[in-house]
Structure formats: structure tokens, C-alpha cells
Amino acid sequence: MRNILQKHLNLYFALAVVVFSFGAADSMAGGKAPKPPKQEWSFDGMFGTFDKAAAQRGFQVYQEVCAGCHSLRQIDFRHLAGIGYTEEQIKAFAAESEVTDGPDDEGEMFERSGIPADPLPSPFANDQAAAASNNGKVPPDLSLMNKARIGGADYVYALLTGYTDPPSGIEVPEGGSYNTYYPGHIIAMAAPLSDEGVEYQDGTKATVAQQANDVVTFLAWTAEPEMERRKSMGLKVLIFLFIFTALLYRVKKVVWKGAKLR
């Protein structure tokens, strides 16, 4: 019995040493990414709405910068009405893309210009093509990006603005970049945004921070297009429930008056 105990104590001790040294190595290599700083967003809180101007600028950033590699599969042109585009603007956006349709009555596929019911065009035909053009890594679809990462909008913003030179002693492999907020820090995506990288139609100065803010607002909308309706309906539902429950509480009090001593 004593032998077994001794053996186990030894084992536990050895394990503790191993675990501790792993932990130390981990923190020395800086493997853990820092928590992304909290930003102020138009869509925060119970009454938050999408800043439509920012979302539209973000759509421009997406089209001119991100769309070269990243798809937005869940979004159709018609959805863009959700960030304040008119029907004419949406038709014009759609018409810019060429769509393969068919087969027609002769069984042939044909080309036509896009209509509002079409999805936004994806940059690559399939994942294999996407990987082949990007050092073997598929650029992720952005439709749900804000919902699909811990930290949400703050994380995506921190990532887009978090490119720095690597600290001394860290070797960045060929084709990679150093990013403060990416888990593991070595990210396959090169810094996508640069000052004046886009020219905003509304005259807003296109700093990296501004572009990041705008594209994150746009992606907040692509991830949760129902958000504004959800929050406004929620307010009505909660007001109703509070009044209804208060009334039920009164009814309960009246019904139960003296009941226990009956």
C-alpha cells in the first residue's frame, strides 16, 4: 500500500513539474493572445442600431479589399436593403456581376448580369481553388465572422489593426505575418488595410482604424441582419411581460389572501 502511494506521489510530482514547465514555456513564447480591447460600437447595448453610413463604407471596404479572397456566402444583393441601400442601388450593384445560369431550353448554360436575388459572387470557385491561391489556407467566409470568434466585433477590429513587426527573437515564416491578437500570432493573411487604401465616396478620411471600424460594422450586420428588429421587438415583449407579470402578481396576492389560514 505504502509503495503504491509513494509511486503515485512521485507521479503527481513529476506531472506537476511537466505541467508547470509547459505553462512557463507557453507564457515565455507569448503563445496566448491578449484580450482584444473593448471598442464602442453603434450596435452595442439594448438600443444599439447599425450605423448605416459606416456599414455602407464597410461594404465598400469589403468589395475593394476583402472580396479578393473572402466570400460572403450568406448575403444576397437584395439583403443590402438592410444597410440602407435603395432598390436602384442594389440593382446597380448586382448588375456589375456576371452570373452563369441555366440550363436553358437547349440545355446550354449561359451568362447573364446579376439580379438582386443573386448571392454576392465568391472569389473562388471552391475551397481547393481558394487554398491553391493562398499558400494552402482557405480564407474563411466572412458572413458570420463577428459571431464565430470569441470577442466578436472587438476581436475582428483588434485583428485588423493588430499587425506589428514581430518582437525580437520571433521568426515569422515565409508567407506569414505577425499579429498581436491572432492566437499564436502568426497569421496567413497579410495586413489587409492601409491608410487611404480605399477612397470613400462620402469623403470620410480612410485611415486604417476608420476602415476597420467600418468593415466591422458591416460584418456585424452580415452576421446578425435581424439585430435591429430583434432588439425593438424584445423591448415590446419585455414591457408587455413586465406589466402582465405585475398584474399576475396582484391577482395571486388577492386570490391567496387569507388562504393559508383557511
Partner: peptide
């Protein structure tokens, strides 16, 4: 009536998550 009142309180919590922290 007691169960209905409890239901009201429960639905407030439930609705909070559905609408504001889904």
C-alpha cells in the same frame, strides 16, 4: 394563479436571452 405568476417571471428571463443575448 401561482404557476402563472411564476411563468411570467420565467418568461421575462427567457425573453431577455432570446432578444438581447441569444
Amino acid at each position: 394563479v401561482k404557476d402563472l405568476y411564476g411563468l411570467g417571471v420565467f418568461l421575462i428571463c427567457y425573453a431577455f436571452f432570446v432578444f438581447y443575448a441569444p
